[in-house]
């Protein structure tokens, strides 16, 4: 494992911790999209089915379990916690997730490495992860004001993807015969989804002001 991959994973983990801390400390999930969180849970469940039949490393197994547990913890807070769930902007978080899930599934059936249940579900999770942030970005656009923690959470999620891109370039040059087009193309799309957000995030940071999205 190279340094870019490790930095990417740690940034991903940190983004989730930031979100969980925000929810626990402020007892509020205002500005957080439950749809995006549920999509991430679907992504992790369909991708990490290999926990049952293959072992890559202790690091790999532990991280997968952490990602699964934290995804469901966040959903539990937003749906069931008696204080937190009242702060959820249900009326604003209306993205039609089936418009993401169905096309990703069809694409996974058409473009995959192997026509098996686990491989198609793994491919589906790669495609779905690329677009899973969209309900969150739409929610931000609607509510306009972005609180610092939610802004940092999304910024770290985007950074994690950017670090993975660097990791793939590194692996391409250091590992003989290493190529994975499905992951590369989806990962590039996924990183591009954040570009607009990055622009406004960096602008707010440079001007030392609270982040605002244009109407």
């Amino acid at each position: 494992m190279n340094i870019f991959r490790l930095a990417g994973d740690m940034t991903h983990l940190l983004s989730i911790i930031v979100l969980l801390l925000k929810i626990q400390a402020t007892k509020s999930c205002a500005g957080v999209s439950l749809k995006t969180q549920e999509l991430y849970a679907v992504v992790f469940v369909t991708r990490y089915l290999d926990l049952f039949y293959s072992f890559i490393s202790l690091y790999n197994t532990v991280m997968k379990i952490i990602f699964l547990l934290t995804a469901f913890t966040i959903i539990w807070y937003m749906r069931k916690h008696k204080v937190v769930c009242q702060t959820y902007d249900k009326e604003q978080d209306t993205f039609r997730v089936l418009f993401l899930i169905v096309p990703c599934f069809v694409l996974a059936l058409l473009v995959n490495h192997e026509m098996s249940v686990t491989e198609v579900l793994w491919t589906f999770s790669i495609y779905l992860e690329a677009v899973a942030i969209l309900p969150q970005l739409v929610l931000l656009q609607r509510t306009k004001n972005v609180d610092n923690l939610t802004g940092n959470y999304i910024f770290m999620l985007g950074s994690y993807r950017a670090l993975y891109l660097v990791n793939w370039v590194y692996r391409y040059f250091t590992e003989l015969g290493y190529r994975q087009w499905i992951v590369w193309v989806s990962g590039t799309v996924q990183t591009c989804v954040y570009l607009d957000f990055f622009y406004y995030y960096v602008q707010a940071w440079r001007n030392n002001e609270r982040m605002k999205l244009p109407g």
Partner: peptide
């Protein structure tokens, strides 16, 4: 080999 190399990422 190839299969495990593409599944070793999170």
């Amino acid at each position: 080999e190839w299969h495990s190399a593409i599944h070793d990422e999170l």
